[in-house]
Simulated assay, not measured.
Amino acid sequence: MYVVATPIGNAADITLRALDTLKRADAIACEDTRVTSKLMGIHGVATPLVSYHEHNAAKMRPVLIGRMQAGETIALVSDAGTPLVSDPGYKLVRACVEAGVPVTALPGPSAALAGLVLSGLPSDRFLFAGFLPNKSAARRTSLGELTAVPATLVFYESPQRLAESLADMAAVLGPREAAVARELTKLYEEVRRGPLPDLAAHYDSAGPPKGEVVVVVAPPGAEAEAQAVDVDSALRDALSRLSVRDAAAEVALMTGRPKRDVYARALELSREDGR
């Protein structure tokens, strides 16, 4: 079986290898034959389509496994992005593994990865958390379990729930830097960046955006690191004009940081700079 990433929303992004595989397969298993047939028609792929989604998966899995054990090649695609990422396809892969059926993946567009790359947030370590619960209380509980994860967080979200979800993220995760990306790899691609409270306020005022949405949130401590950099910059500027004590007082008032902490840092910077 081939797991093929097919960009239904942007036909130009599909790879040549994926097209060749889809043409050579005996059948293409897809979430919605009406949606997939549009992409197949654009590229002249005449391979028969077979419906495979969460409502018929239990019934269809043994049918597909039987066909593959008989020597047929099945390609699995999803309505958007990479199969198995927030869809039930992993159960079919697991069934293939248990039945000794070879499985390979053909990479392609992934909204989660595209959103992470475009966010400008740390990408060396990240956690894809999928969709959060629909209700605020359950959503906040789930977010609470992620507060200490030392990685950038990536979520999928419904446009209709976006403002509420961002507000819950701000309440639970704090004013972390974040990015909201929509319609990735498509014509109306858009990325909006800023602290979670600002993004929540924007979408509460502007209303639900159109298209599929990815939310990327900075890891814990990133905002503290940014604040430390800002304090150092402000202190160096103040120290060029004022005494250590006066510079610390000015920056503490400006940033809202504790005077004792700012004064201690001012002393350190003053020594480093030989003042």
Rank of each mutant, 00 (worst) to 15 (best):
267 L>H: 09
58 A>H: 13
217 V>K: 08
18 A>Q: 05
85 V>L: 05
145 E>M: 04
144 G>L: 02
179 A>P: 04
136 S>F: 10
205 S>D: 13
225 E>L: 09
262 V>R: 03
169 M>Y: 05
247 A>K: 03
6 T>G: 08
112 A>I: 10
53 H>L: 09
162 L>Q: 04
269 L>Q: 10
164 E>I: 10
178 A>P: 00
135 K>C: 05
71 G>E: 15
49 L>C: 01
167 A>F: 14
90 Y>S: 06
16 L>C: 09
186 K>V: 07
29 A>M: 00
200 A>K: 05
204 D>V: 00
110 S>E: 10
224 A>V: 12
122 P>D: 04
146 L>W: 03
155 F>M: 15
94 R>C: 06
168 D>L: 00
10 N>S: 08
182 R>N: 09
29 A>C: 08
182 R>H: 04
29 A>H: 07
65 I>Y: 01
245 R>D: 15
252 A>E: 03
85 V>E: 00
10 N>D: 09
242 L>T: 12
108 G>F: 14
23 K>W: 07
261 D>W: 11
43 H>C: 11
243 S>V: 10
178 A>S: 11
109 P>W: 13
233 S>R: 07
60 M>Y: 12
141 T>R: 00
92 L>N: 08
253 L>Q: 05
204 D>E: 15
32 D>M: 02
30 C>F: 06
92 L>H: 01
120 G>R: 01
51 S>R: 14
